[in-house]
Simulated assay, not measured.
Amino acid sequence: MTIGGAAEPGAVAVPRLAATVVMLRDSPDPAPGRSPLQVFLQRRVAGMAFAGGMTVFPGGGVDPGDRPDPAHWSGPDPAWWGRRLACEPELAGALVQAAVRETFEECGVLLAGPPEGGAALGPDLAPALAAGREDLVARRRTLADLLAATGLVLRSDLLRGWARWITPPASPRRYDTVFFTAIVPDGQQADAATTEAVEAAWWHPAAALERWQAGEIELMAPTLRTLQQVAAFADAASALAAAAERTITPVIPKVRRQGEQVVVVVPGDPEYATAVDHLSPGGRP
């Protein structure tokens, strides 16, 4: 993930644009009492400047190189995504490009496929994609460069918009982040091969929420709210289908305590004015 700039002392930081992908799958071996639906989560390195030690979905900041190449793009175009995300087409295209790039960098899942259709990536592409992933992380080339070199096209139809969250003003580093969802394409596997996380795995959303409530993992408000929402679905297909019905507007979240629970509140909730930017399950700020 690319880290945004920090605010000057006493100033409010300008949010940096970012994209996050809630990767979905149905567990091949569901745990007893759990639905098949799982999400991919990573626990970030504790010393990182933003969200250190937090358990998050893959994602990161929009880079200057995240400019879509129409010759290597398939599915809804930037103009369509601009209408969906309520922003300019150029920005929407960069957000989609960043979402695909960051997902590939951080967990090795590439939301792309051959131009003739399908999302299958042949084994003959494995060496080029492995080298390309390293180049992307090192910023030696862009995702558009990699797609051109491998003859693949970005599959924007594999993504669905979910939400848009803005870091509260009190944070010295802020992001304006679009949350997307996607199902891992057949034949691909998410991995933990990133230096930005100390562990990564597939979780049942309810299990992640239980671990958070027990104080065993830390979640930021947008991650918490998203897990609570996704946990309501029985399988990955249902969650992906529901994304198409969601209205996406920028939200600055806050949290409040309700008994032993920490509850995310958003503008319009009666308790929003008295809520705070962050609480742990145990009550620590």
Rank of each mutant, 00 (worst) to 15 (best):
T167L: 04
A182Q: 03
A208Q: 10
T181I: 12
P205D: 04
S171T: 10
F179P: 00
T177I: 09
Q188A: 03
A190V: 02
A206L: 15
A182I: 06
F180K: 00
R141L: 06
W162C: 02
A170N: 14
G215V: 08
V178T: 09
W212T: 06
R211S: 13
L143H: 00
L224Q: 03
V178A: 08
P172E: 07
L154R: 05
L147A: 04
P169C: 05
R225V: 13
A207Y: 10
I217C: 14
W202A: 05
A201P: 09
R160N: 10
D191Y: 09
A170V: 11
A206W: 07
V153W: 01
F233H: 09
A193Q: 05
T195E: 15
L209R: 12
R155H: 03
G215S: 01
D191T: 11
R140F: 07
L143W: 00
R160S: 12
R164H: 08
A193P: 02
G161V: 12
A221D: 04
Q229F: 10
L143K: 00
G187S: 06
E199Y: 12
P205R: 03
R225S: 13
S156Q: 06
V198L: 13
P172S: 05
D157H: 03
D191V: 12
R155A: 04
L158S: 01
E218A: 14
T142K: 08
P205M: 09
A206Q: 15
E199I: 14
G215N: 01
R160G: 11
H204C: 04
T223N: 11
D186Y: 12
A232K: 07
P222Q: 06
S171V: 02
R174N: 02
E199M: 15
G161C: 10
E199C: 15
P172Y: 06
V153Q: 03
T150E: 02
L224T: 04
S171P: 05
V153L: 09
L152G: 05
S156C: 11
W202G: 04
S156G: 11
W212C: 09
D176V: 03
S156T: 11
E218K: 15
E216I: 15
T142C: 13
L159Q: 01
A208V: 03
V178Q: 07
L227Y: 10
Q213K: 14
M220D: 15
D145F: 08
P205W: 02
E210I: 15
L147I: 04
F180L: 03
F180V: 04
L209V: 11
W203P: 03
L159K: 01
L209G: 10
P169E: 09
L227W: 07
V184G: 00
A149C: 10
R211Y: 13
I166L: 04
L158P: 00
W162G: 02
